[in-house]
Design a protein around this nucleic acid. Structure first.
Lengths: 230, 230
DNA sequence: CGAGGTCTTGACCCCGTTCAAAGCACGTGG
DNA sequence: CCACGTGCTTTGAACGGGGTCAAGACCTCG
């Protein structure tokens, strides 16, 4: 059984709307679950049976066409909410990109709890409105940006979302450890893996980034990145 | 001053959550407004100062890159909600595609009213969750579909959203009056106006649709459309 | 009837995909 | 410790879908 007092996202997740007593009631219907990288907890097209808060890790939301093309439609981080409350089927799968930890609720239980706790619903509404804004901004990238703009926009977003280590770097540089494979980056940006790889190579040749290992990126010239993101 | 009792979207908009007394209170802070085709009520990047319910018409939500490329990120119909409650700036402009009528509230007034009426917030939450699902599905189209698939998906969506007249048609055919110009269709699909035009011509030549006038489309073979939408 | 905007069509080209092969990191077993 | 296999990534070469540029057709309204 989860102990919310010790929860690292206690004050950032939607649970922040609740007082100690309410939190205990929510705690009673939830349980924490660990996911290995690559493991899914929700599948596209299924009935929505569970919802969850992300405690730690990074997860992708993705849809596929019948013939197997994939599009990643969202990426969630600690304190984010996942799943589809209030009926209907889940329109996209949810899969851990790295080892993750989530706080899971049965959708039925959560729905009932939420309907009787307006402050929680309010937090969820604010979060959903924010997610909708973010998603719509991403549509501009998918519909109208070139491969170069997509790549640089992606790296800028990663810097903002993940934060960076500046230690172990030359002054002005930042180190980024991506939670994505090349294929997953392609699925986020609506490109092929080859185009993603070529863009990485180009940025490296131009001295804007460096690539110490497969998952690591050193940001050498952040301004150039922002300028090219459009 | 609006009279909610006569409102045609009374039972479908978020207002459906309210009883007669509450409705009167909401009525007191709202007013109806008429928009001509092409007129905007919200501009991208501005502070969010107003929200509204759509009573009649069709409106687009759109963002632009600095160099003028446009992407339409949403289309709203009667009973839909527009604007960004609970702080922040509006991330996209809202513009009428055809002559429209909306029920406008100051964002401050609406926020305060919503926070004290959980049933209204709940309706808004359900609506926002639905809109987020719809938006994410559209991302698959933008990121992964070909021009032909985009075009046919668009026409299928239009049939579902607008309904069709089957009178004044041969048996099995349906007539569709689009609220979009060719350029706007291109901005929805992430294509150029020329590609949209070519796809229309192709579908006409293949006998799948007919084009009696600029804004009208006759759906001759709906199954073929669905099959090609992917 | 003419002017201006929207839409269609054609010709060409380029960006990103496709197809193919080679390089690289990492784990496993000899 | 090295040989080998496997999966991911990079790179190259060729192709083609959709963009770009330009001209012409079609509406609509003064």
């Amino acid at each position: 059984m989860a102990n919310c007092d010790l929860c690292v996202v206690r004050n950032r997740a939607i649970c922040a709307a609740l007082d100690a007593e309410e939190l205990e009631a929510l705690n009673a219907i939830g349980r924490t679950r660990t996911l290995k990288a690559g493991e899914s907890i929700i599948w596209e097209g299924e009935d929505s049976v569970l919802v969850a808060n992300v405690i730690d890790g990074v997860l992708k939301l993705s849809t596929n066409t019948e013939d197997g093309r994939e599009q990643i439609v969202g990426v969630v981080y600690p304190s984010d909410f996942i799943g589809r409350p209030f009926g209907g089927t889940t329109e996209y799968g949810v899969t851990a990109l790295v080892d993750s930890q989530v706080c899971v609720f049965s959708r039925r239980d959560f729905d009932a709890f939420a309907r009787t706790h307006p402050a929680l619903e309010h937090k969820l509404l604010e979060r959903t409105l924010g997610e909708l804004d973010r998603t719509r901004r991403w549509m501009l990238l998918l519909g109208r940006k070139s491969a170069a703009e997509k790549m640089t926009s992606f790296l800028v977003e990663m810097v903002e979302r993940l934060g960076c280590r500046t230690d172990a770097c030359k002054p002005g540089e930042r180190l980024l450890t991506l939670p994505f494979s090349r294929q997953q980056i392609a699925d986020v940006l609506g490109l092929t893996i080859e185009t993603v790889s070529r863009q990485f190579s180009r940025l490296k040749n131009e001295g804007v980034i460096d690539l110490p290992s497969r998952r690591d990126v050193t940001i050498v010239d952040y301004q150039a990145l922002v300028a090219e993101a459009g």
